[in-house]
Design a binder for these strands. Sequence first.
RNA 1: GGCGACGUGGCCAAGUGGCAAGGCAGGGGCCUGCAAAGCCCUUAUCCCCGGUUCGAAUCCGGGCGUCGCCUCCA
Length: 500
Amino acid sequence: MSVRAYNTMARAKEDFLTRDPGKVAMYVCGPTVYNHIHIGNARTFLSFDVIRRYLTFRGYDVRFVQNITDVDDKIINRANEEGRSATEVAHEYTVAFQKAMADLGILPPTVQPKATETITEMIDMVQRLIDRGHAYVVEGDVYFSVRSFPGYGKLSGRDIEDLESGARVDVDERKHDPLDFALWKTAKPGEPHWPSPWGEGRPGWHLECSVMSERELGVTFDIHGGASDLVFPHHENEVAQSEAATGEPFVRYWLHGGLLQVNAEKMSKSLGNFMLLKDVLVEYDAPIIRLMMLQTHYRSPLEFSTERLNEARVAYERLLVPVREVKRALESDAGWAARPATTEERKAFVGNIGNARDKFQAEMDDDFNTAGALAAVFELARATNRFLGGFGIGEHSENAPVLSQSAQTIIELLGVLGIAMPEARAGEYPKEVVKVAAELAGYSGSDPRAAVEALLAARSAARTERNWAAADAVRGGLEALGFTVEDTPRGPRVTYSPEN
RNA sequence: GGCGACGUGGCCAAGUGGCAAGGCAGGGGCCUGCAAAGCCCUUAUCCCCGGUUCGAAUCCGGGCGUCGCCUCCA
């Protein structure tokens, strides 16, 4: 079985065959750095991060390129509003973008070119287009002539005539055709500018991706990704520019992600209904955000709400429990068995592990179906809970290897989706617990860990005396500080998990 | 107006011809002093109407509804 992917150009799922065997050349449109990215932007970057991770998992050597658009009208506008330079604005939000990506657990691109560092190549492509009769100069501006490229509209499934009849495009007298778009713009006073054969100016937005992808990946590269709102005109224009300039097909597979919505409406900066990624990350850890988003297929619209994030928090915990419980059992329950597992029962459990792995891969192979893949992991989590609860480690620790294997599989498969286990917080018990221990357990030291031990001992004593009020006071005191106290057949256990 | 996508249990969401995954929430049970966690059981005429087929959530036609793009947008 090979990977299949939905190709916007073909309007169908296709077998994924790369230009060079074993290698993937992949490009995803990056942000225009005029503001912090919102959670909708983040979804797209997350989708392609997972696609990249999965292709790597499948053994491909992935070269992943994502640009930064650091010269653009929006950046200039923002700079003017704030009375500072465009360079300053771009730099601030470039740094913020990179940090937010890292915080969401998104792997850094192999290369991250900036528009302002690719000006020479931009000018070169504009010149190539002019030379080949696909672009024309008007008073220092250069426009691409859509009529000169017969394939215009093939990506988005549009027809030039239809576009023009319904056109709300502003009529610029200087353009040969209303659909022609700027490759190079004359700089107004105070705007960033670079010298060119057509005068001082700056590149048009659509040009950037064509140039940077060609520079980093060559002409017909494997995957070009972005959100579906970029299909037209951005990607359509890229196809036109690149294919007109090179005479070669631009991209093998066009992948487009669905949009994130709020109240059934697209989240966008212009609509003002957005939440910034960095703000969401304050309340919810990256694995929770990732889990929430990946439970929906990347091409489907995704309704965003804090309710869904809260649900994902619970679901994430469900995935953590078997891993945590297996680890704990391996550490402290050696030789314990609720009842012995038969060889067949153990074999069946090993089968569950294999099935989860197979299903995970089959789902991901089928157009990166993360929702289906996650279902496989949830199923393995249940099987692990059942096996551990039913049989334990085994009298002679005979179940230890399979339990360990299962927990490792859960960790590994989640890892392919970039959903990390929580970081160990060993030794980070809060100091307040000492005071509670002094109050309820007569503890006189200052070590939080010993204080917890003292509290548990006091609670056990109270329970032996059937003094439920005292026992519950201890549990309540611990829970108020973020501990969970649970009684098991093997004795009480405490887990510390401060709310994130 | 043009082009495209979607409509699956209370909510979210996989599944694109053969007994309807998974998560959240709810109900019942086991376990527990009570809990928690876990396990077991439990909730679907797959928007409507026709058609094709031995068989349709899945294919075709029509209708209704929602969303996206057509202007900057991830």
